[in-house]
Design a protein around this nucleic acid. Structure first.
Lengths: 293, 293
DNA sequence: CCCTGTGATACCCGGCAGGTATCACCGAGG
DNA sequence: CCTCGGTGATACCTGCCGGGTATCACAGGG
């Protein structure tokens, strides 16, 4: 495995530049976002295109459009840039550079804020009891941010919910399966039912389903746009919306909430996931502990 | 998603340099491999360590050793560098820069040289019959090189054998399962048996098991070191070695070979695998075709 | 004791990354 | 039809840094 053939090897800076332009579709704004002037950006992209021997952008007089090759570089480049920043972050962490007095042996576990209370407690207790256990830092993450955190190295492992999180590209182990419940305002007529179906709750007159952001995009619908769980809890308590949650969400329900099991909702499978190429002993032990719960 | 925080972002060149040093554990040789002089290399690594705020190498007067952080950067950096070169390669290919008159719509399928004859034939025929099919380039790969080829962008998909190839980090679909056979010289006494066990063939007096390289490393043992299938076929025909293969290897046996089914060998599962983040329509169609065979 | 081989340092040069000023072009208004 | 605003591209300059050569400092082995 000598130097295989790296005739011209796509520098990280060029990747950052291109991604900014490809996302903004505008050289000026991209340059501003990158904290630089527009001319050097234009030149850098031109040089990149020349080096790759491929046209990445179609310059219409009014803005910019991606070519097929540009589309490809947008996707692949994001993955590559994530992998690079992940390498930097994990290396810093392995060297203990993130916190002066911190242990060199730390694992960062990404957990959706507010979820997994019970499971997480058991996991942390069980792992702490292991001999020679690493320090576990629990990193609260946004709604569907765990994948990104694993990919860019902010986290070493994550607890994920199967139908909501994509496990693509990660190794994972199944931890538990649970049903789903509808969380209703306590006073609502439907709250008296023993069970409900998805159809029952998806079109309640005057009580639209809450909408969560996926990748910063809200699905269309009449319901309110939700950012965090507390906000949602309040809106439900006020009788303004309904939401569907895994069974374990019961732990954070208020007195003004009523949980009704859903008969036909797909089961939610909780996984612990980690980057497939990971070789850390501490991580392996954490996973083993988790699967034995 | 503005500029998150890129205080100092690990350039590709630095990664290449560090990997060379980490693999050689010797600045001089690494510099030679990189086609540069040793002093700039030393400085680059020092700067990298300063930027990361982490010590990567322990300089003993007699050579170099990796620290924990260095070990981490060696692993993570390899993945990152692969992702980067993959991005460059796939972008070039998407732009049709690899071959002047070539179709923009090409898929590269990595196949272990000499294996999968029958399956591959059926797959290519079935796919070619699809409407709007992309051009498939079959790329012969070394013994266990397919993972690397997917990772660094030389291939878009690969046919893999489950117990031998690692599917970690890839998406995959199962295509077929088969048993394994021992391939013996036709004249050997054991060749007369209807079946054999692994124990039978692993210690035949005067007929040691052939050894294949895995990642460039040969497992220890008395048998000959094998590089390619033709060489192995010849050595078997000459009565110098035995080998174990999936059932489908029967297609390339010589008259001087005898195949004997193994009763206790683990079954071999053939998969088609591809990078988990892939979003290509042509690839999706190829996978669908493959699973329908 | 010197000789050999290691990585680090000193110093120099050229190229390229980045800045400012400006151009070339087109679409929208008047 | 002409002008004006906003786009990306070009021209030109400068300073930094990547890379080279020559040399040092140091440890081991004869």
């Amino acid at each position: 495995m000598d130097t295989p053939d790296t005739p011209d090897a796509l520098e990280t800076r060029e990747l950052r530049y291109f991604l900014a332009v490809a996302e903004e579709l505008h050289f000026g704004r991209a340059a501003e976002r990158l904290g630089m002037a527009q001319p050097p950006l234009s030149r850098a992209i031109q040089r990149l295109e020349r080096r790759l021997g491929v046209s990445l952008l179609q310059r219409n007089r009014r803005g910019v459009a991606l070519t097929d090759a540009g589309e490809m570089l947008l996707h692949e480049g994001r993955a590559a840039l994530d992998a690079t920043t992940a390498a930097a972050r994990r290396t810093r962490r392995a060297g203990g550079a993130d916190r002066p007095g911190g242990s060199r042996n730390r694992l960062v576990l990404a957990v959706k804020a507010g979820a997994f209370h019970e499971l997480l407690h058991k996991l942390l207790d069980a792992y702490a009891a292991e001999p020679d256990a690493a320090e576990i830092e629990v990193l609260p993450s946004g709604t569907c941010e765990q994948e990104e955190m694993l990919r860019d190295g902010r986290a070493d492992a994550a607890l994920m919910h199967k139908p909501f999180n994509s496990l693509a590209g990660f190794d994972s182990e199944e931890l538990m399966t649970e049903g789903q419940i509808a969380v209703l305002p306590a006073g609502h007529p439907l709250a008296a039912h023993r069970t409900l179906s998805l159809a029952d709750v998806s079109n309640i007159p005057g009580l639209p389903l809450a909408r969560w952001a996926r990748n910063g995009i809200y699905p269309p619908g009449p319901g309110p746009e939700i950012h965090d769980q507390t906000q949602l809890a309040q809106l439900i308590a006020l009788g303004r919306t309904v939401a569907v949650f895994p069974d374990s969400a019961r732990t954070w329900l208020w007195a003004e909430h009523t949980a009704v099991p859903l008969t036909d909702a797909p089961p939610v499978v909780t996984h612990i996931a980690w980057p497939a190429h990971s070789r850390s002993l501490a991580l392996a032990r954490l996973v083993r502990t988790a699967t034995r719960l």
